[in-house]
Protein backbone atom coordinates (compact mmCIF):
# COMPACT_ATOMS: atom_id res chain seq x y z
CA UNK A 1 0.00 0.00 0.00
CA UNK A 2 1.37 3.36 -0.91
CA UNK A 3 0.04 5.73 1.67
CA UNK A 4 1.81 8.79 0.25
CA UNK A 5 -0.46 11.56 -0.80
CA UNK A 6 2.08 14.24 -1.64
CA UNK A 7 2.15 16.10 -4.87
CA UNK A 8 5.25 15.94 -7.01
CA UNK A 9 4.75 19.06 -9.04
CA UNK A 10 8.33 20.24 -8.51
CA UNK A 11 9.71 16.96 -9.82
CA UNK A 12 10.25 16.77 -13.56
CA UNK A 13 8.18 14.49 -15.73
CA UNK A 14 9.81 11.15 -16.47
CA UNK A 15 11.70 10.84 -19.76
CA UNK A 16 12.52 7.49 -21.34
CA UNK A 17 12.52 4.89 -18.59
CA UNK A 18 15.86 4.53 -16.82
CA UNK A 19 17.23 1.33 -15.39
CA UNK A 20 19.43 0.48 -12.44
CA UNK A 21 22.44 0.38 -14.78
CA UNK A 22 21.93 4.03 -15.73
CA UNK A 23 22.66 5.06 -12.15
CA UNK A 24 25.99 3.22 -11.90
CA UNK A 25 29.10 5.32 -12.51
CA UNK A 26 32.25 4.03 -14.20
CA UNK A 27 34.25 4.21 -10.96
CA UNK A 28 35.37 1.02 -9.21
CA UNK A 29 33.54 0.57 -5.91
CA UNK A 30 36.14 0.53 -3.14
CA UNK A 31 34.65 -0.78 0.05
CA UNK A 32 36.02 -3.75 2.04
CA UNK A 33 34.71 -7.20 1.08
CA UNK A 34 31.61 -7.94 3.15
CA UNK A 35 30.77 -4.27 3.80
CA UNK A 36 27.09 -3.50 4.21
CA UNK A 37 27.51 -0.45 1.97
CA UNK A 38 27.47 -2.59 -1.21
CA UNK A 39 23.93 -3.72 -0.51
CA UNK A 40 22.74 -0.22 0.25
CA UNK A 41 24.36 1.16 -2.93
CA UNK A 42 22.74 -1.42 -5.14
CA UNK A 43 19.43 -0.96 -3.36
CA UNK A 44 19.50 2.80 -4.04
CA UNK A 45 20.48 2.26 -7.68
CA UNK A 46 17.63 -0.20 -7.99
CA UNK A 47 14.85 2.01 -6.61
CA UNK A 48 15.84 5.28 -8.34
CA UNK A 49 14.43 4.51 -11.82
CA UNK A 50 10.96 4.07 -10.36
CA UNK A 51 11.08 7.52 -8.74
CA UNK A 52 11.08 9.02 -12.23
CA UNK A 53 13.67 11.72 -11.59
CA UNK A 54 16.20 12.08 -14.42
CA UNK A 55 19.87 11.54 -13.57
CA UNK A 56 20.80 15.15 -14.28
CA UNK A 57 18.27 16.33 -11.74
CA UNK A 58 19.52 13.98 -9.04
CA UNK A 59 22.27 15.03 -6.65
CA UNK A 60 24.05 12.92 -4.04
CA UNK A 61 25.92 14.78 -1.31
CA UNK A 62 28.11 13.19 1.34
CA UNK A 63 30.54 14.09 4.08
CA UNK A 64 33.55 12.02 5.12
CA UNK A 65 33.73 8.38 6.10
CA UNK A 66 33.35 5.03 4.34
CA UNK A 67 29.70 5.66 3.45
CA UNK A 68 30.54 9.10 2.08
CA UNK A 69 32.31 7.62 -0.96
CA UNK A 70 28.81 6.83 -2.16
CA UNK A 71 28.40 9.75 -4.66
CA UNK A 72 31.41 8.57 -6.70
CA UNK A 73 29.53 5.40 -7.56
CA UNK A 74 26.37 7.11 -8.74
CA UNK A 75 26.07 8.34 -12.30
CA UNK A 76 24.29 11.50 -11.20
CA UNK A 77 25.57 14.86 -10.02
CA UNK A 78 27.49 14.31 -6.82
CA UNK A 79 29.45 16.14 -4.14
CA UNK A 80 31.82 14.43 -1.70
CA UNK A 81 32.20 17.29 0.77
CA UNK A 82 33.97 17.54 4.13
CA UNK A 83 33.43 15.86 7.45
CA UNK A 84 29.95 16.39 8.82
CA UNK A 85 28.97 19.20 6.49
CA UNK A 86 26.93 17.42 3.81
CA UNK A 87 23.57 18.71 5.14
CA UNK A 88 24.78 22.30 4.78
CA UNK A 89 25.61 21.91 1.10
CA UNK A 90 22.55 19.79 0.44
CA UNK A 91 20.13 22.23 2.10
CA UNK A 92 21.42 25.03 -0.10
CA UNK A 93 21.40 22.84 -3.22
CA UNK A 94 17.71 22.07 -2.71
CA UNK A 95 16.77 25.64 -1.76
CA UNK A 96 18.73 27.12 -4.62
CA UNK A 97 17.28 24.64 -7.09
CA UNK A 98 13.93 23.22 -6.00
CA UNK A 99 13.80 21.26 -9.29
CA UNK A 100 16.50 18.86 -8.01
CA UNK A 101 16.11 15.72 -5.95
CA UNK A 102 18.80 15.74 -3.27
CA UNK A 103 20.12 12.78 -1.29
CA UNK A 104 22.54 12.94 1.62
CA UNK A 105 24.66 9.95 2.52
CA UNK A 106 26.26 10.03 5.95
CA UNK A 107 27.38 7.78 8.77
CA UNK A 108 27.15 7.63 12.54
CA UNK A 109 30.38 9.59 13.01
CA UNK A 110 29.83 12.04 10.15
CA UNK A 111 26.17 12.71 10.85
CA UNK A 112 25.95 12.46 14.62
CA UNK A 113 29.36 13.49 15.90
CA UNK A 114 31.19 16.13 13.87
CA UNK A 115 28.08 17.01 11.87
CA UNK A 116 25.41 16.63 14.55
CA UNK A 117 24.55 20.31 14.55
CA UNK A 118 23.96 20.42 10.81
CA UNK A 119 21.84 17.28 10.85
CA UNK A 120 19.39 18.57 13.46
CA UNK A 121 19.02 21.92 11.72
CA UNK A 122 18.45 20.44 8.26
CA UNK A 123 15.73 18.26 9.81
CA UNK A 124 14.05 21.00 11.85
CA UNK A 125 13.93 23.27 8.79
CA UNK A 126 12.20 20.49 6.85
CA UNK A 127 14.77 20.80 4.08
CA UNK A 128 13.54 18.50 1.31
CA UNK A 129 16.43 16.03 1.59
CA UNK A 130 16.61 12.27 1.70
CA UNK A 131 19.18 11.62 4.41
CA UNK A 132 20.56 8.08 4.66
CA UNK A 133 22.57 7.51 7.83
CA UNK A 134 24.59 4.31 7.66
CA UNK A 135 24.98 3.25 11.27
CA UNK A 136 27.71 0.66 11.89
CA UNK A 137 28.55 1.90 15.38
CA UNK A 138 32.26 2.35 14.59
CA UNK A 139 34.71 4.67 12.83
CA UNK A 140 35.80 2.55 9.86
CA UNK A 141 37.78 4.92 7.65
CA UNK A 142 40.06 5.93 10.53
CA UNK A 143 40.42 2.24 11.37
CA UNK A 144 38.36 1.38 14.35
CA UNK A 145 37.63 4.00 17.00
CA UNK A 146 34.31 4.07 18.85
CA UNK A 147 31.55 6.24 17.43
CA UNK A 148 28.69 8.18 19.03
CA UNK A 149 26.45 5.15 18.53
CA UNK A 150 28.88 2.54 19.93
CA UNK A 151 27.47 0.52 22.82
CA UNK A 152 28.47 1.61 26.35
CA UNK A 153 31.60 -0.24 27.43
CA UNK A 154 32.65 -1.19 23.87
CA UNK A 155 36.35 -1.96 23.51
CA UNK A 156 37.91 -0.32 20.46
CA UNK A 157 41.35 1.01 19.51
CA UNK A 158 40.63 4.28 21.28
CA UNK A 159 38.78 2.65 24.19
CA UNK A 160 40.92 -0.36 25.18
CA UNK A 161 39.20 -0.48 28.58
CA UNK A 162 35.75 0.07 27.11
CA UNK A 163 33.86 3.26 26.34
CA UNK A 164 32.53 5.30 29.22
CA UNK A 165 29.93 7.29 27.28
CA UNK A 166 26.37 6.43 26.40
CA UNK A 167 25.45 6.12 22.73
CA UNK A 168 23.11 8.47 20.88
CA UNK A 169 19.86 7.18 19.47
CA UNK A 170 19.73 8.46 15.86
CA UNK A 171 15.96 8.16 15.52
CA UNK A 172 15.33 9.98 18.80
CA UNK A 173 17.52 12.80 17.50
CA UNK A 174 15.65 12.91 14.19
CA UNK A 175 12.29 12.93 15.94
CA UNK A 176 13.34 15.59 18.42
CA UNK A 177 14.41 17.66 15.41
CA UNK A 178 10.87 17.30 14.00
CA UNK A 179 11.93 15.47 10.84
CA UNK A 180 8.79 14.83 8.79
CA UNK A 181 9.83 11.33 7.67
CA UNK A 182 11.74 9.02 10.02
CA UNK A 183 12.52 5.39 9.29
CA UNK A 184 14.87 2.52 10.07
CA UNK A 185 16.01 -0.32 7.80
CA UNK A 186 18.67 -3.02 7.80
CA UNK A 187 21.34 -3.63 5.18
CA UNK A 188 20.65 -7.36 5.13
CA UNK A 189 16.91 -7.12 4.49
CA UNK A 190 17.03 -5.86 0.92
CA UNK A 191 13.38 -5.95 -0.17
CA UNK A 192 12.30 -3.99 2.91
CA UNK A 193 15.27 -1.63 2.58
CA UNK A 194 14.19 -0.93 -1.01
CA UNK A 195 10.63 -0.27 0.15
CA UNK A 196 11.79 2.22 2.80
CA UNK A 197 14.17 3.97 0.40
CA UNK A 198 11.36 4.34 -2.13
CA UNK A 199 9.11 5.90 0.49
CA UNK A 200 11.90 8.24 1.58
CA UNK A 201 12.51 9.14 -2.06
CA UNK A 202 8.86 10.04 -2.57
CA UNK A 203 8.54 11.99 0.67
CA UNK A 204 8.46 15.75 0.30
CA UNK A 205 10.36 17.20 3.22
CA UNK A 206 13.19 16.05 5.45
CA UNK A 207 13.40 12.25 5.24
CA UNK A 208 15.75 10.54 7.67
CA UNK A 209 16.54 6.84 7.30
CA UNK A 210 18.83 5.05 9.75
CA UNK A 211 20.26 2.00 8.03
CA UNK A 212 21.72 -0.59 10.39
CA UNK A 213 24.88 -1.56 8.54
CA UNK A 214 27.68 -4.02 9.09
CA UNK A 215 31.38 -3.11 9.18
CA UNK A 216 33.03 -6.42 8.31
CA UNK A 217 36.51 -5.27 9.30
CA UNK A 218 36.29 -3.17 12.45
CA UNK A 219 32.94 -4.14 13.93
CA UNK A 220 31.87 -7.37 12.27
CA UNK A 221 28.39 -8.36 13.31
CA UNK A 222 27.60 -4.73 14.13
CA UNK A 223 23.89 -5.52 14.53
CA UNK A 224 23.84 -9.32 14.69
CA UNK A 225 22.16 -9.31 18.09
CA UNK A 226 18.95 -7.95 16.52
CA UNK A 227 19.39 -8.05 12.75
CA UNK A 228 21.24 -11.35 12.28
CA UNK A 229 19.32 -13.61 9.93
CA UNK A 230 18.83 -16.26 12.63
CA UNK A 231 17.27 -13.91 15.18
CA UNK A 232 15.81 -11.15 13.03
CA UNK A 233 12.21 -12.37 13.06
CA UNK A 234 12.17 -12.67 16.84
CA UNK A 235 14.13 -9.53 17.62
CA UNK A 236 12.76 -7.01 15.15
CA UNK A 237 9.34 -5.48 14.85
CA UNK A 238 8.26 -4.34 11.40
CA UNK A 239 6.12 -1.21 11.62
CA UNK A 240 3.20 -0.84 9.26
CA UNK A 241 0.94 2.19 9.34
CA UNK A 242 -2.54 1.37 10.63
CA UNK A 243 -1.66 -2.21 11.59
CA UNK A 244 -1.33 -3.77 15.05
CA UNK A 245 2.26 -4.39 16.15
CA UNK A 246 2.95 -8.07 15.65
CA UNK A 247 6.28 -9.86 15.24
CA UNK A 248 7.96 -13.23 15.68
CA UNK A 249 7.24 -16.46 13.86
CA UNK A 250 3.75 -16.21 12.33
CA UNK A 251 3.16 -13.06 14.34
CA UNK A 252 2.87 -14.88 17.63
CA UNK A 253 4.11 -11.92 19.65
CA UNK A 254 2.68 -8.47 19.96
CA UNK A 255 3.33 -5.13 21.65
CA UNK A 256 0.94 -3.29 23.93
CA UNK A 257 1.30 -0.54 26.51
CA UNK A 258 1.33 -1.10 30.23
CA UNK A 259 1.15 1.65 32.87
CA UNK A 260 0.25 4.10 30.15
CA UNK A 261 3.60 4.56 28.46
CA UNK A 262 5.62 1.38 28.73
CA UNK A 263 5.64 -1.06 25.83
CA UNK A 264 5.42 -4.72 26.79
CA UNK A 265 5.60 -7.88 24.70
CA UNK A 266 2.66 -10.27 24.90
CA UNK A 267 2.07 -13.70 23.40
CA UNK A 268 -0.49 -13.64 20.59
CA UNK A 269 -2.83 -16.29 19.33
CA UNK A 270 -3.15 -15.33 15.63
CA UNK A 271 -6.64 -16.83 15.52
CA UNK A 272 -7.77 -14.60 18.36
CA UNK A 273 -5.44 -11.56 18.65
CA UNK A 274 -5.81 -9.38 21.75
CA UNK A 275 -7.75 -6.15 21.21
CA UNK A 276 -5.31 -3.95 23.16
CA UNK A 277 -2.27 -4.34 20.86
CA UNK A 278 -0.61 -1.08 19.86
CA UNK A 279 -1.64 0.04 16.39
CA UNK A 280 1.01 1.93 14.45
CA UNK A 281 0.21 5.48 13.39
CA UNK A 282 3.04 7.01 11.33
CA UNK A 283 0.78 9.94 10.41
CA UNK A 284 0.21 11.18 13.94
CA UNK A 285 0.79 14.93 14.05
CA UNK A 286 2.84 14.78 17.23
CA UNK A 287 5.70 12.30 17.26
CA UNK A 288 4.87 10.90 20.71
CA UNK A 289 4.27 7.31 19.58
CA UNK A 290 7.28 7.47 17.26
CA UNK A 291 9.45 8.59 20.21
CA UNK A 292 8.21 5.71 22.29
CA UNK A 293 8.99 3.24 19.50
CA UNK A 294 12.42 4.79 18.92
CA UNK A 295 13.32 3.94 22.54
CA UNK A 296 12.53 0.22 22.08
CA UNK A 297 15.39 -2.27 21.73
CA UNK A 298 13.64 -5.64 22.31
CA UNK A 299 12.11 -6.00 19.84
CA UNK A 300 13.77 -3.33 17.74
CA UNK A 301 11.25 -1.58 15.49
CA UNK A 302 12.09 -0.94 11.83
CA UNK A 303 10.04 0.61 9.07
CA UNK A 304 8.51 4.08 8.94
CA UNK A 305 8.19 5.68 12.38
CA UNK A 306 6.85 9.00 11.20
CA UNK A 307 5.53 10.32 7.91
CA UNK A 308 3.80 13.70 8.02
CA UNK A 309 3.46 16.55 5.58
CA UNK A 310 4.59 20.15 6.19
CA UNK A 311 5.69 22.95 3.88
CA UNK A 312 9.35 22.51 2.95
CA UNK A 313 12.12 25.06 3.35
CA UNK A 314 12.60 25.52 -0.40
CA UNK A 315 8.85 26.03 -0.93
CA UNK A 316 8.66 28.66 1.79
CA UNK A 317 11.71 30.44 0.43
CA UNK A 318 10.19 30.53 -3.07
CA UNK A 319 6.90 31.80 -1.66
CA UNK A 320 8.63 34.73 0.07
CA UNK A 321 10.47 35.59 -3.13
CA UNK A 322 7.27 35.41 -5.14
CA UNK A 323 5.58 37.74 -2.62
CA UNK A 324 8.55 40.14 -2.64
CA UNK A 325 8.45 40.31 -6.43
CA UNK A 326 5.31 42.41 -6.26
CA UNK A 327 7.89 45.18 -5.90
CA UNK A 328 9.85 45.61 -9.14
CA UNK A 329 13.54 44.69 -9.13
CA UNK A 330 14.89 48.07 -10.25
CA UNK A 331 18.63 48.03 -9.65
CA UNK A 332 19.10 51.76 -10.25
CA UNK A 333 16.40 52.57 -7.70
CA UNK A 334 17.98 50.17 -5.22
CA UNK A 335 21.38 51.82 -5.57
CA UNK A 336 19.84 55.28 -5.12
CA UNK A 337 18.16 54.29 -1.86
CA UNK A 338 15.75 56.50 0.04
CA UNK A 339 17.57 59.85 0.21
CA UNK A 340 19.66 61.26 -2.61
CA UNK A 341 20.87 64.68 -3.66
CA UNK A 342 22.21 65.86 -6.95
CA UNK A 343 25.48 67.68 -7.48
CA UNK A 344 25.13 69.70 -10.65
CA UNK A 345 27.90 69.95 -13.21
Amino acid sequence: MDDHDHNFDTLPAAGPALTMKDFKSDQMVRWCPGCGDFAILSSVQKILPALGVPREKTVFVSGIGCSSRFPYYMNTYGFHSIHGRAPTLATAIKCARPDLQVWVVTGDGDGLSIGGNHLIHALRKNADLKILLFNNRIYGLTKGQYSPTSEFGKKTKSSPMGTIDEPLNPLAIALASEATFVARAVDTDLPFLGEILTKAGKHKGSAFVEILQNCAVFNDGSWDEVAGKAVRDEKMLRLEHGKPMLFGKEGRQGVRLKNGFEPEVVAVDPANPPKDLLVHDAKAKTPTLAHLLAQMHEPMPHGVFRDVSKPTLDQLMEEQIAAAKSKPADLQALLRGAETWTVAA
Binding site: F79, R97, H118
Partner: peptide
Amino acid sequence: KHKNFGVKTFQAEDEIAAMGSAIGAAFVGM
Protein backbone atom coordinates in the same frame (compact mmCIF):
# COMPACT_ATOMS: atom_id res chain seq x y z
CA LYS B 1 15.31 43.08 2.25
CA HIS B 2 15.89 42.59 -1.46
CA LYS B 3 14.17 39.29 -2.18
CA ASN B 4 12.41 41.01 -5.08
CA PHE B 5 15.76 40.62 -6.90
CA GLY B 6 15.39 36.85 -6.47
CA VAL B 7 18.13 36.74 -3.83
CA LYS B 8 18.03 33.87 -1.38
CA THR B 9 19.32 34.57 2.11
CA PHE B 10 19.94 31.73 4.49
CA GLN B 11 20.66 32.33 8.17
CA ALA B 12 22.64 29.19 8.87
CA GLU B 13 23.01 27.34 12.17
CA ASP B 14 26.68 28.29 12.35
CA GLU B 15 29.54 29.80 10.39
CA ILE B 16 30.54 26.46 8.91
CA ALA B 17 27.03 25.82 7.65
CA ALA B 18 26.92 29.30 6.15
CA MET B 19 30.03 28.52 4.11
CA GLY B 20 28.83 24.99 3.30
CA SER B 21 25.56 26.43 2.02
CA ALA B 22 27.45 28.86 -0.20
CA ILE B 23 29.45 25.99 -1.70
CA GLY B 24 26.26 24.01 -2.32
CA ALA B 25 24.62 27.02 -3.96
CA ALA B 26 27.70 27.60 -6.13
CA PHE B 27 27.65 23.95 -7.21
CA VAL B 28 24.15 24.41 -8.61
CA GLY B 29 24.86 27.72 -10.35
CA MET B 30 24.09 30.58 -7.99
